[in-house]
Design a protein around this nucleic acid. Sequence first.
DNA 1: CTGAAAGCGCTTACAG
DNA 2: CTGAAAGCGCTTACAG
Lengths: 334, 334
Amino acid sequence: MVPRVRIKDVAMLAGVSTATVSRTLSSPETVGQKTREKVIKAVKATGYRINGAARDLRQRRARSILILAPNLSNTFFSQIFAAIQEEASEVGLTVQISDSRIGRDRLLSLGQDGRADGIVLLDGGLDPDVVNGWNLPLIQLSEWNIAYDAPRLGIDNHAAADLAVEHLAGLGHRRILHVSGPQENVLAVTRQEGFLAGAKKRGIDQSVFPGDFTLEAGAEAARFWSTMQHRPTGVFCASDECALGFISECAHMGFEVPGDVSVIGFDDIDFADRFLPSLTTIHQPRNEMGRTAAKRVIAMMRAAQGEDAEPAPDLKDSIKATLVDRASTGRAAL
Amino acid sequence: MVPRVRIKDVAMLAGVSTATVSRTLSSPETVGQKTREKVIKAVKATGYRINGAARDLRQRRARSILILAPNLSNTFFSQIFAAIQEEASEVGLTVQISDSRIGRDRLLSLGQDGRADGIVLLDGGLDPDVVNGWNLPLIQLSEWNIAYDAPRLGIDNHAAADLAVEHLAGLGHRRILHVSGPQENVLAVTRQEGFLAGAKKRGIDQSVFPGDFTLEAGAEAARFWSTMQHRPTGVFCASDECALGFISECAHMGFEVPGDVSVIGFDDIDFADRFLPSLTTIHQPRNEMGRTAAKRVIAMMRAAQGEDAEPAPDLKDSIKATLVDRASTGRAAL
DNA sequence: CTGAAAGCGCTTACAG
DNA sequence: CTGAAAGCGCTTACAG
């Protein structure tokens, strides 16, 4: 590694002070024409780049957003990451990502070591003391936890689950099985509540199979379903993964989807529309979620740095989820 | 935001110098027992955390790895990110990610602003001047570019393509279609070369449909395939996405896989084994790729910082790719 | 419009 | 074992 050139080197070459070099780079209009030219020439000649670490320290900011998610390899998150990154990049911010299930101390450190000035949190299962201890602009995205002292953003999971029930009911299904997610997860609980309310409201005969969002849980649910006396003709899974597992296992057992059973998923992950049959599911606009969260946290960061006095407007209205009607659902057989 | 506590505050409270606080935190064994206790007590009382930005500036390092990929939302990358992040986190390093297709200037800046001290590059299509201009420990993962002055890591794409041909040939297929990737991509070109060599070697009747890795290209290839006079009985796609598109389109057109045509993909993405039929494909061990790349770049970073004199060993041996035999391939119909 | 100087919050030779 | 002081590489009042 060749030694990097510092602002001092540029200043000497241009025959000006470091202050002038700094000004030329950050607010050229405050520098005289001729001086500016000299400096720019010297910058080009040396290939100088501002040392971000030094700039950040001096300005007491990090120009960086930290994204925390419970499982980075989860395909549901990647589009959200991409959207946040894009939004951040546009305003010159850097993006850090970390698995949120690292040790408590490391986690605390991430939000307290001064190398991030805003957080997008995709995990509602962390210790509230840790989250509140960060004391940084933070937004909860998708998952949430009422013990976190921070605004949240996401779809209305209760209403979305109702959408699923409504769709199945509209197709004539009178017995519906819900394959739920883990009960310690807010999303799972809220979707289940929405399902139960929707079923009750419409006089649907409901049952719930306790799952955990995974493919395997879906397959297990399908085996359970096949043994039921009065098999539900409709199934609402708390995640797409789970729905795909359910459908795959049905195929193995010789049942047809949607001929024998209609299946709805949740999320609309990348492969939902490529699966055979393509999956009817609840679409979560992940790009919009990521962009909005990024914008929101950036506004909070600006406010925290006093760049504008007014706090970011509270976006109470949730992101809109929609049902995507594909091939895995059909009219109920009588 | 409450004002953060600085090392000075801790020092005053403990009645020692900042140097002693610093030592207590970084090398406690060099500090006297009683002093250490006082300091630790003061640290606890104040909730002090080292300011990473200041530490980094002083030590001229960033404790951060930068990951660059051409498309963050691509499901192929997420497991790699997760693996790198895990490995990095274990040694106290932070991970930044960025889309590599941002503007040239921003890109240059990312590697030159002193906020990363190592790079994992998953894009072989960048301007070599930019890449070589970073002057940071860097490893090329998966994709590569001979113009980049950096070690590379990945599978042997040529050999992997041969594996696919071998598999189809072994099932009796004598006419094979290759749906290639974009010709400006090294992976696509290398896989195609491997395919052609493998076909030639075995006296296979080959043809190539120019694709671009996408689902749509696969669907298009399927339509083309259906119009061929002597339809190939085997198809090798340069990516899983593409293979899924091919299979889906076959289903729409009323062809069966593998009854009418056997299809092999490439990558073994998450959904390859959940698709119906499950996809025979070339498995790329993404977790291993990520971990190995991380270890490698960390070793290079250490060497660059002079922590150990010997340079990192050159891992010429590539990561091993294997063929996963699933349900989308079968014996050739006569 | 420009420069000298202070300071962001740490770490680390150096001296004792 | 401990402290005073310098310095990492910038930016920014302050003064002129």
